[in-house]
Simulated assay, not measured.
Amino acid sequence: MTEDPFAGRTAVITGAASGIGAALAAELGARGMSLVLADIDEIGVRRMAAEMRDRKVHALGVGVDVSDPNSVAALAEASYTEFGSVELLCNNAGVLLLGTVAESSLGDWRWLSSVNVEGTLNCLHAFLPQMRRASGWRYVMNTSSTHAFLPDTSRSALYSATKHAVLGLTLGLRTELAADGIGVTLLCPGQAATRILDSQRNRPQSYGRRAGEPFGTGVIPMSIEPAEVARIAVEGIRRESPVVFALPEDTRATFRSQVESMWRLADDALGEHLETRAAAVD
């Protein structure tokens, strides 16, 4: 696709109160889209919507807990009531905590997966039925992470596991929705200058005690700016790319070597299997 598909259409963006979600709002709004901005931080997301309206963008801010199917259903109803259609769904809401598998609690896992995995599914179930019945350009972008491609996820195994799930879900969804004419892209940021280290500020008490925060709660240093992530993501949607990586320029060579190490694990295992079969034949 070479033309700009965004102007005059509506996007729903979760996790839109700050970080990459807010940057996606600014990028898509500048390209002429109407916006439904959703976040568990209701005050923050309504403020972001007001900023978009100050820029002459038609924007609605909605407080939403993506882990709650009823909350997401209410988001879908508000979106269609306000705009009549949704052409782009950006499942961007995500949370992070760090710690070893042995030290992490089941509450840690349940919280991470409830937002990162079930939150994505809840949004898909709420929006896809009407998107599939519509016609014309329609698109879904799910946010995963470069962590879905790393061979060593020490201290981030639970988080990485949820992002592996989003990877598998998105690649399968891309095939499933092709027949409906709906495009799907996986966004994989790495080291973005966001508040993701402070994700537990929104962690419900029902998931138990907060995990330790070994790297503090500040903005990630030596990072790519959210605005650049959003620009790369939106260009990836325009090109209908299956996967889009957005990470600092000076970390790309390291990331490529990490991905190559990941695939060497498979190559080594397959090689051992072939050697075992050859020895058995001999």
Score class of each variant (00 low, 15 high):
Glu3Gln: 13
Pro5Met: 12
Pro5Lys: 12
Phe6Leu: 05
Arg9Met: 15
Val12Lys: 10
Gly15Tyr: 05
Ala17Leu: 13
Ala26Ser: 05
Met33Asn: 04
Leu35Phe: 02
Asp39Thr: 01
Asp39Met: 05
Ile40Glu: 09
Met48Pro: 06
Ala49Arg: 06
Lys56Thr: 09
Gly61Gln: 04
Gly61Thr: 02
Val62Arg: 01
Asp68Glu: 09
Ser71Ala: 13
Ala74Arg: 14
Ala78Ile: 06
Ser79Tyr: 10
Ser85His: 11
Leu88Gln: 02
Leu89Cys: 04
Cys90Asn: 07
Cys90Ala: 12
Cys90Glu: 06
Leu97Ser: 03
Leu106Tyr: 14
Trp109Ala: 08
Trp111His: 07
Ser114Arg: 04
Glu118His: 14
Asn122Glu: 05
Leu124Phe: 03
His125Phe: 14
Gln130Leu: 14
Arg132Met: 14
Thr143Gln: 13
Thr146Tyr: 13
His147Met: 13
His147Asn: 15
Asp152Val: 07
Tyr159Ala: 03
Tyr159Cys: 04
Ser160Gly: 11
Thr162Ile: 07
Lys163Val: 08
His164Trp: 15
Gly172Glu: 12
Arg174Lys: 11
Gly181Ser: 14
Thr185Pro: 11
Cys188Met: 12
Pro189Cys: 02
Thr194Gly: 03
Arg201Tyr: 05
Arg201Val: 00
Tyr207Arg: 04
Tyr207Ser: 01
Gly218Ala: 04
Ser223Cys: 07
Glu225Asp: 15
Glu225Met: 11
Pro226Glu: 12
Glu228Ser: 11
Val229Glu: 08
Ala230Pro: 04
Glu235Val: 01
Gly236Asn: 03
Ile237Cys: 13
Ile237Arg: 01
Glu240Val: 02
Ser241Val: 09
Pro242Gly: 09
Phe245Leu: 12
Ala246Glu: 07
Thr251Asn: 12
Ala253Phe: 10
Ser261Glu: 13
Trp263Ile: 08
Arg264Phe: 04
Leu265Gly: 08
Leu270Pro: 05
Leu274Pro: 01
